[in-house]
Amino acid sequence: MEQATVKWFNAEKGFGFIERENGDDVFVHFSAIQGDGFKSLDEGQAVTFDVEEGQRGPQAANVQKA
């Protein structure tokens, strides 16, 4: 698992990007966020996640709020 920071997340559209420590951004979809209830992330929030290869490149999976 990697630890990184949420760059931005649009709760209405259900997706955003996580900024990795190496500077690369990773796409995150609300369905990858672990937990119950409304799944959203806040800008600047610390998260841990795995990286999977998606249809359009790397994307976050198993996202957990740190």
Rank of each mutant, 00 (worst) to 15 (best):
G35Y: 08
L41E: 01
D24G: 12
G14Q: 02
S31I: 05
A4E: 04
A11C: 14
F30E: 04
G35W: 10
E43K: 15
W8D: 04
G14P: 00
I33K: 00
W8E: 05
K39Y: 05
A4W: 05
G37H: 07
F17K: 01
M1A: 13
A4F: 05
E2S: 12
D50Q: 14
E52S: 10
Q3N: 11
H29R: 01
F9G: 04
L41T: 02
G37Q: 06
T48A: 07
Q59A: 07
S40L: 08
Q64E: 09
E21Q: 13
Q59T: 07
D50W: 15
I18P: 00
V51H: 05
S31L: 08
K7Q: 01
A4L: 02
Q55S: 14
N62L: 06
K13F: 10
G16L: 03
F9E: 03
Q34Y: 09
T5G: 02
R20W: 07
Q45F: 05
I33E: 01
G23L: 08
K13I: 09
W8T: 02
V63I: 06
A4I: 00
K39P: 07
Q64L: 10
A66P: 08
E2C: 14
S40M: 10
Q45A: 09
V51N: 03
A32E: 06
F9K: 00
E2A: 10
E19T: 15
G37I: 06
E19I: 14
E2Y: 15
V63T: 03
V51W: 09
T48L: 12
F49D: 03
A61M: 11
L41D: 03
T5V: 13
K7C: 06
Q34P: 05
F49S: 01
A4Y: 05
V47H: 01
F30W: 15
N22I: 10
V47W: 01
V28Y: 04
N22E: 10
V63D: 04
K39W: 06
G23I: 05
E21R: 09
H29A: 04
I18T: 02
S40H: 10
W8C: 09
A4P: 03
D24Q: 13
M1C: 14
K7M: 03
F17E: 02
F27P: 02
V26Q: 01
E19C: 15
G54K: 07
Q55F: 13
V51T: 08
T5Q: 08
P58S: 08
E19F: 13
F9C: 07
G37E: 07
I33L: 07
A11G: 08
Q59S: 07
T48W: 14
D50S: 14
V51A: 04
F30R: 06
Q34W: 10
D42N: 14
Q59V: 10
F38A: 08
A66G: 11
E43T: 15
G54A: 06
G37F: 06
E53N: 12
F30L: 05
R56T: 08
A32R: 00
A46E: 10
G23E: 08
K39E: 06
E43N: 14
T5R: 13
E12G: 10
D50I: 15
K39L: 10
A61D: 03
R20Q: 07
R20K: 07
K65C: 09
Q59D: 02
A60W: 02
E43V: 15
N10Q: 05
G16Q: 01
K7H: 06
F38T: 08
G44N: 07
N62E: 04
D50G: 09
H29D: 02
N22R: 09
G14Y: 02
P58M: 09
V6Q: 01
R20P: 03
T5S: 09
Q55C: 15
D42Y: 15
A66E: 11
K65T: 12
I18G: 01
H29K: 01
E12V: 13
V47M: 01
G16E: 02
S40I: 11
F49G: 02
H29S: 01
M1N: 12
R20I: 08
A46S: 13
G23A: 09
Q55K: 14
H29E: 03
T48Q: 08
F38S: 06
A60L: 01
Q64K: 12
M1H: 13
K13R: 11
D50F: 15
F27E: 01
D42C: 15
D25C: 14
M1W: 11
A61L: 08
Q45M: 11
V51S: 03
F17P: 01
Q59R: 11
H29T: 00
A32L: 00
K39T: 06
F49R: 00
N62C: 08
A61I: 13
E2V: 11
K39S: 06
V6T: 04
E53P: 10
G44S: 05
S40N: 07
T5A: 07
Q45T: 09
Q45I: 08
D24K: 14
D50N: 15
K13A: 08
G57R: 06
K13H: 09
G37Y: 05
F17V: 07
P58R: 08
K39M: 07
V47E: 03
G54H: 07
Q3T: 14
V63K: 00
E53Q: 14
Q64P: 03
K39H: 07
Q55Y: 14
W8R: 00
E52R: 10
P58T: 09
F9W: 15
F49L: 07
R56P: 07
I33G: 00
R56K: 12
A4G: 15
A60P: 02
D36L: 11
V6M: 01
A11F: 09
K39D: 05
V6K: 01
I33T: 02
T48F: 14
N22V: 10
A11Y: 11
A66K: 11
G37V: 05
E19R: 15
A60G: 04
G16Y: 00
L41R: 00
A11E: 08
F9R: 00
E19Y: 13
K7D: 02
K65H: 10
G16M: 02
G35N: 07
K7P: 03
Q64S: 10
V47F: 02
V47N: 03
V28G: 01
E53G: 07
R20E: 05
A4N: 04
R56A: 09
T5K: 13
R20M: 09
Q34I: 15
Q45G: 06
T5H: 13
A11D: 07
V63P: 02
Q34H: 10
Q64R: 13
E53T: 12
D36R: 09
E52C: 14
P58Y: 09
T48P: 02
H29F: 08
E19L: 14
V26P: 02
G57C: 06
V51F: 09
E43D: 10
A4R: 00
D25L: 15
N62Y: 06
N10P: 03
F9A: 04
G57H: 03
Q64N: 12
D25A: 10
I18Q: 03
V26I: 13
Q64A: 10
G44Y: 04
N62H: 09
R56L: 10
E2K: 10
S31K: 06
A32W: 03
K65I: 14
Q3E: 11
G35H: 09
A11P: 13
Q45Y: 06
G14M: 00
T48N: 07
G57M: 03
W8P: 04
D42E: 14
